[in-house]
Simulated assay, not measured.
Amino acid sequence: MYLRPFDPWKNPLCTCPFKYTLNVYTGCDHACVYCYITSYIPNAFRVRTKEGLLPKLERELRKFDGRHIVALSYSSDPYPTIEKKLRITRKVLELFRRYDVRCLLLTKSDIFERDLDVLSELRCAVGVTVTTVDKEKAKLLEPNAPLPERRISALKKAYRMGIPVYARIDPIIPYYTWGDFDDTLEALSFVSHITVSTLKLRPDSKKRMFAKFPELMERLWPLYERGERIGGYYYLPKELRFKILREAEKKITGKGITFGSCREGYRSFPSCDGSHLVPP
């Protein structure tokens, strides 16, 4: 089965409403330093296709309950570099159009701009993740992802076409991206919903962060040592997390944008993931 109920490792802090998820590719070549998929996908930064995806997916869609949302994608970005040539995600979206599937699209790429003609005919909401609008920081954190300004420009085009749009500011990193939050929020002020999440580390991503940002981690890691271990992740101390989240919420809602948080044990309204934007 390629369509699977979304279950983020039964994390006790996940508040996602029921939905299905589909990862068009295996692996993601954005190679974000903080990425968690390396803990469960072998060779996670090498993109692979899935054998027989399109015919198998179509068979599944013939029996699919159209009331449910399918999210693209939470483990492997639906728009890796190779999608420019292979166009598999576009073909998936064309199947969604044929079977009237409700879709929640999330990416860290601008390639989706190519597919706005299809997306505009779907019951969908489109979102991008922007960790920071600082180009230099973004390039260090997300070495192979398109620059944030390109993602935001593509999302603005979706917005102008009348497609519901949302964003994730994720992860928020104290001493690093948190200082850019106001600028990042301002650049995304046209969206309807923003989900935020603080940096959560697993042993593999912790090792990469120390290798890439030794000075930052010398300041940051003592905070995590005082924090919590939840679902295999190192979390910032709850008091600090909630202080950041309260400030983020105030700034986001102050712009008339609805607020969500991801796996934080904090509030969200009207949904944590932006799924409320998908037309019924």
Rank of each mutant, 00 (worst) to 15 (best):
E225Y: 11
E186K: 15
R267V: 13
P279Q: 10
E121Y: 03
P146T: 12
K135H: 14
C14S: 14
I37R: 08
P203Q: 14
D110A: 13
T132N: 00
S39C: 06
M161E: 11
R48F: 11
V126C: 12
R123N: 14
T258H: 08
I82F: 10
A31D: 12
L72M: 06
Y79G: 00
C28H: 02
E228D: 14
I41Q: 00
G231C: 13
D100A: 14
I244M: 15
L188E: 07
G66M: 03
K207E: 15
D115T: 02
D273P: 05
I173Q: 02
T195L: 00
K56W: 05
T132Q: 00
R48S: 11
T21N: 14
D117Q: 12
K10D: 09
Y224C: 07
T131Q: 04
Y234M: 13
I173T: 00
I172G: 01
E121F: 06
G232W: 06
S120Y: 01
L188V: 02
C262A: 11
R160W: 12
D110E: 09
L141C: 06
R98P: 05
W221N: 12
G256K: 07
R102P: 04
A211M: 12
P146D: 10
P78W: 02
T38C: 12
I230E: 02
E218K: 15
A145I: 03
G66S: 09
T184M: 06
E264Q: 10
D183C: 01
P12E: 13
L105H: 00
V133W: 02
G66Q: 08
E136P: 04
Y224P: 05
G256A: 10
L54T: 10
R59L: 10
L277I: 09
G265K: 11
E58V: 07
A187I: 05
N23E: 07
N11F: 07
E228C: 07
L140S: 11
N11L: 08
D29N: 11
A44V: 06
L155N: 01
